[in-house]
């Protein structure tokens, strides 16, 4: 049975982006309806052409950042979209403050979304924050 998983992704650290991407990709590919709302420090990593390494929080972040066998968070979010139809939504406020538009983001991203709309859609569903 499918369920809804809503993820708020705001941290720009490697570990939290990685965990959010893991949950999104596995959930979406397993039939769950996954929606990820990107804001704050998380959004800029998804500007087209951006390859910036996310800073690590601790030792485990260093391990996953340096191990080629660990899929990257960018790859996992793309797979969440391509394999499981996850919705990747940019926060409209964050876009405004970064002075970019959704056209500047990778094509897997959907329409700019306000927090109110996201929370209304998430009503009653599981909501995870990273």
């Amino acid at each position: 049975m499918s369920r809804q998983i809503h993820i708020v992704c705001v941290s720009g650290t490697h570990e939290k982006l990685q965990m959010a991407a893991m949950v999104a990709s596995v959930g979406a590919a397993s039939g769950d309806e996954v929606t990820v709302f990107f804001s704050m420090n998380a959004l800029a990593y998804f500007v087209k052409g951006d390859t910036t390494d996310a800073p690590v929080e601790g030792g485990f972040g260093t391990i996953i950042a340096n191990n080629n066998g660990v899929p990257s968070f960018r790859q996992l979010f793309q797979q969440a979209s391509e394999l499981g139809d996850a919705k990747l939504l940019p926060c409209s406020m964050a876009l405004d403050l970064l002075e970019i538009t959704d056209d500047d983001l990778i094509p897997e991203f959907g329409v700019p979304t306000g927090l109110t709309k996201f929370l209304m859609d998430a009503e009653g569903a599981q909501l995870l924050s990273f």
């Binding site: 893991m22 990709s25 596995v26 590919a29 191990n67 066998g69 660990v70 899929p71 996992l76 797979q79 394999l83």
Partner: peptide, 9 residues
């Protein structure tokens, strides 16, 4: 030599 969730994906 790939790690979760790489093989599943």
């Amino acid at each position: 030599n790939t790690y979760c969730p790489g093989p599943l994906m």
